[in-house]
Simulated scan of single mutants.
Amino acid sequence: MNKQTDPLRYAMAIFLLIGLIFSGLAIYFFKTQQDFIKTAIQTEGRVINLQNGRKGGKAPIVEYADKEGKTHFYYHDVYTKPSSYSLGEQVKIYYNPSYPDNARLGGDYFLIMIFGFIGVIFTFISIVCIKVFWKPM
């Protein structure tokens, strides 16, 4: 087979590209989360309901108050099965002082961990394949 059209070379390049994209997204999401937390106000919220997802997962609906005492609701968008939260549970929540409806759960790094894990696995596989199979032209 011609070395320039070897499908393994393309597969290694695609795996490396996927790994780098997912790793980059994990870093971006982490930095965005940290930047938000730096400017946000931390408060305690309470899980008042668990929203049902399509495949049986549940996501919390959290009630919290801003510094003026006005009540707000946060609808989490990550559904887990079994639920990661229980009714009445106290949770840490961060909200934007200028827009108190813009909030995030404290310590919510699920998406970042998934993207980082996928990125590391794909990058690792591509590097191992390059070390094992790559032969200079």
Rank of each mutant, 00 (worst) to 15 (best):
M1N: 14
K3D: 13
K3E: 13
R9S: 15
R9Q: 14
M12Y: 08
I14H: 06
F15A: 15
L16V: 03
L20K: 09
L20G: 10
I21Y: 07
A26L: 08
A26S: 15
I27E: 06
I27C: 09
Y28G: 06
F29E: 12
F29Y: 10
F29L: 15
T32N: 12
T32L: 10
Q33C: 06
Q33Y: 11
T39D: 14
I41R: 08
G45E: 06
V47K: 04
V47C: 00
G53K: 05
R54H: 10
R54W: 06
K55Y: 10
G57E: 02
P60C: 04
P60V: 01
E63N: 06
E63R: 02
D66R: 03
D66W: 05
T71H: 12
H72A: 02
H76Y: 04
Y79D: 01
T80E: 10
K81V: 02
K81L: 14
K81H: 10
K81R: 13
Y85Q: 00
V91G: 05
K92F: 01
N102H: 09
N102D: 12
N102K: 13
A103G: 00
A103V: 02
A103F: 04
G107E: 03
D108E: 15
F110D: 09
F110S: 11
I121D: 06
F124A: 13
S126P: 04
I127E: 06
C129R: 04
V132M: 09
W134T: 07
